[in-house]
Structure formats: structure tokens, C-alpha cells
Amino acid sequence: MFSRNRMTTTALGALALCATLSLTPAVAQDSTDPIKLTLHDWTGQLITTQIMGEVLKKAGNNVEYVQADYLAQFAGLESGDLHVAMEMWETTGRDAMDAATATGKVENFGATGMKAKEEWWYPEYMKEKCPGLPNWEALKDEKCAEAFSTAETAPKGRYLGGPVTWGGFDDERVEALDLPFEVIHAGTDAALFAELESAYQRQAPILLWIYAPHWSTAKYKGEWVEFPEYTKECYTDPAWGSNPDMAYDCGKPFGEIWKVGWVGVKDKWPDAYNAIKAFTIDNDEMGQMITKVDLDGKKIEDVVAEWMGANEPRWSQWIKK
């Protein structure tokens, strides 16, 4: 009798445990499918993305890096074919990001901690030839424009823009502000700064797209052109600004560098999602790492590994459960 009662009690206990377990919600686990992080065509973004990728690998995630166009990538992020873009700059990517998030298929994962500035920039030695700078109206003067000209653009000045994939509306800005300049787009990030290096060494005229965080603003003495301050209406309402018939008659916006991605990341990879949202880095850190790659000749992988080793207590918190 004792034995039978004991067995009955045990069986009832087991049933109660099973009932309890069935009522306990299952803890979501990250999928073993690869998280696809997009790579673009400038050093800082490659560093940011690989830091994030290495941190996710430490958490046990499967990571895949995919080369993608900066603006066109949103088609892949909306469909879920791509998953995370670690740098979307307020200065050039806000419109594309807002359009994508408005679909409900892309999510803003928050700020990276870096602050973006991208604008026309000139070496300090050019102020003697165009003394009205940094005021943008100095560029309207034909003598100033000629000072920035080259054989291919004379008598118009030459403005060296970033690769066309970066956006930025420089061609539209020149037309809207009636500047006697021709926009020439650099083929790559490396070509852009190689030309700056060459011109600076020769004290040759150059006006070009410079962005921060980057090493160039520390290495070279110069200034950004001061255009009419950006407002959203400048880009959307032709009636705004000095040209009543055209938009983009102002400078570029300044602001955050954002992390964005496919809205399904939080459900498919919940732990990775939390880590991506927690990721943060500042301009000084990034500028130092870009310098190590672009000026000191170190490999991106080595610079990332060095950062990972020096910051383990920090990134460990990003993946802490």
C-alpha cells in the first residue's frame, strides 16, 4: 500500500511539473541562419561593421558580410535578404532611411554614438585666392571659381564630390545656388583622399567632399564651406530658400549616424538585436582606427582585433543575457 501511494504521489508530481513547464513561455533563441551585415565603400563603415560582426560571433551568432550599395541596400533590408546596415548617415541617408522605415519593413536600431558632418571643404591656403570663404557666396565670384578650376573645368571651378552612390545632392546644390562649378565625382573613397593628399602636398587648388569622423580633418588644415543652414523644407519645398524654383539651395544636414535593419531581426535573432541596439562608439575612437588603416597601412581585420582586445569589458555587456 505504501509503495502504491508513493508511486501515485510521484506520478502526480511529474504531471504537475509537466503542466508548469507547459505554462512557462519558451525563451527565444537566435536562429543559426547567418545575419547578413552590409559592407560599403569607406573605411569607417567597414570597421564599424566588422566590430559588430565580431561581437556577434563571440555571442555564437553566424555572421555573413555582404557588399551592398549605400542607398540601394534598402530594397534588400525591406525584403529581409539583407539584415543590418551599421552606418546610415543623417547627412546623406535620412530620406532613404525614412522611406524604408515608413514601409514597416525596416527598423531604426538607434544611434551609433558617432556624429556625422559632410560638406564641401578646402585647404586653408585657398583662402588667399578666395578671400570671402568660408561663406558660400564667395564661390559665386568668377575669380574665386577660376582659382578652383582645372584644365578640364576652366573657367568653371572644380568640386570633387564623393562616389555617386553616396548621394548628397551636390549636383543639385550647384544648380540651385547658381554656382560656377562643375561637379566631378571620385570613383572611390580612396581616390577622393588620394587626390586631396596630392593637391595638399603641391599646394594646388582643391575643393572637395570631406566627412567626419575621419582622419583628414586632423591631418590637414582647412575649413568647411558655410552654406545656408539645412532644414527639411530645403530638400522638399522649392519655394524655401534663395532659389524659389529649386530645392537643395542649402548645405547638407549634420547629425547622427544610425544603425538600421530588417524589422524581422528582433524576432529571428533577439539576442543579436539587443547587441546591435547596444553598440556604441564615438568619433575619436573611429577617427583613430581609420587613421591606423588609411595612413598607417594596417589591415582592417587587425585594427578590429586590436579594438576587441582592448574593449572586452565593454562589448561583453552588449551580448550579456
Rank of each mutant, 00 (worst) to 15 (best):
N5L: 14
R6K: 04
T9K: 11
A11G: 11
L12M: 12
L17F: 14
T20G: 15
L21M: 13
T24A: 15
P25S: 14
V27D: 10
A28L: 08
S31V: 10
T32R: 15
T32H: 14
D33A: 12
D33C: 01
P34Q: 10
P34L: 08
H40P: 04
W42E: 04
Q45L: 15
L46I: 10
L46Q: 06
Q50S: 13
V55K: 00
K57V: 13
A59H: 09
G60Q: 12
N62C: 07
V63W: 08
Y65K: 05
Q67W: 13
A68K: 03
D69N: 12
A75Y: 00
V84K: 03
V84D: 05
M86S: 10
M88L: 08
M88S: 09
G93Q: 03
G93S: 07
A96I: 00
T103A: 13
E107Q: 12
E107H: 09
A111S: 13
T112Y: 05
M114R: 00
K115L: 14
W120I: 11
Y125F: 14
K129E: 15
N135R: 03
E137C: 03
E142H: 10
A151R: 13
T153K: 02
A154D: 05
K156R: 12
G162D: 05
V164W: 00
E172H: 07
P180A: 10
F181C: 01
E182G: 00
V183R: 03
A186G: 11
A186E: 09
D189M: 03
D189G: 01
L192C: 06
E195L: 05
E195R: 14
S198G: 02
S198Y: 03
R202C: 08
A204S: 14
P205R: 04
W209I: 07
I210L: 06
Y211R: 01
W215S: 05
T217Y: 12
T217R: 05
K221L: 11
E223C: 09
W224H: 14
P228S: 04
E229H: 11
P238K: 00
S242F: 01
P244E: 02
D245T: 13
M246L: 15
A247H: 07
Y248P: 08
C250D: 01
C250I: 10
G251D: 07
P253S: 08
P253Q: 10
G255E: 06
I257W: 09
V265D: 02
W269D: 05
P270V: 08
D271R: 12
A272Y: 00
N274G: 02
A278R: 02
F279L: 14
D282Q: 08
M286E: 11
G287D: 12
T291S: 12
L295W: 04
G297N: 12
K299E: 15
I300M: 10
D302I: 06
V304F: 07
S316T: 15
Q317V: 10
Q317T: 13
